[in-house]
């Protein structure tokens, strides 16, 4: 944190009233469990969208947990730090997740996202099948998390990369789910 005094009010007012959940911190398994349960409870009134939000949450949260370049090593090795905001609007839910990534990894993520956004649903399904047939990735990753997010949301991925310095960037992914 910078020397300037942290204003919780400034942080609070950054979010509008449509926010269902906002979280910044280590994405450890307990946090995932608590937020996952919360999503199921509050979206129980709309089970179809609720299930989609839950599925997207797990994939994006696990990405942060495993691949964030920021982590709390003394607590849990699989607890990368990231930020997550879920909002509810008249016709859709919005999902925004972000974390710090090494600049050297960002090209691969952007390329993959561009492929995903260039494909229609049938193309995406084929891409998923091809990727699922590749050898298992690190930590059991099936290389298909982002593809599954796009399929589940049935909408494109909005990717934003904010360079922090030469070594690191902040990666943001936003996706909407219709109600």
């Amino acid at each position: 944190m910078s020397e300037e005094k942290f204003s919780l009010y400034n942080y609070h007012k950054t979010f509008d009233k449509d926010i269902l959940i906002s979280f910044k911190g280590p994405f450890d398994k307990h946090i995932l469990s608590i937020i996952g349960n919360y999503i199921e409870v509050i979206l129980g009134r709309n089970p179809k969208a609720g299930k989609k939000i839950f599925k997207i949450f797990i994939e994006l949260a696990q990405n942060i947990a495993y691949y964030s370049a920021e982590g709390i090593t003394n607590v849990n090795s699989d607890a990368g730090i990231g930020t997550l905001v879920i909002g509810e609007f008249d016709n859709h839910y919005s999902f925004v997740a972000g974390n710090v990534v090494k600049a050297s990894d960002i090209v691969h993520i952007i390329e993959k996202s561009e492929i995903i956004n260039s494909l229609d649903r049938e193309g995406l399904r084929q891409y998923k099948r091809e990727q699922r047939n590749m050898p298992q990735g690190e930590k059991g990753s099936a290389h298909i998390g982002l593809i599954q997010v796009a399929l589940t949301a049935a909408s494109p991925l909005d990717i934003e990369v904010t360079p922090i310095n030469e070594e690191y960037s902040f990666f943001t992914i936003s996706v909407n789910v219709e109600k």
């Binding site: 047939n133 059991g140 099936a142 298909i144 998390g145 599954q148």
Partner: peptide
């Protein structure tokens, strides 16, 4: 009723 993408690979 639900499986994440890591599990989907194992199901295959």
């Amino acid at each position: 009723t639900y499986f994440n993408t890591s599990s989907s690979r194992c199901i295959l």
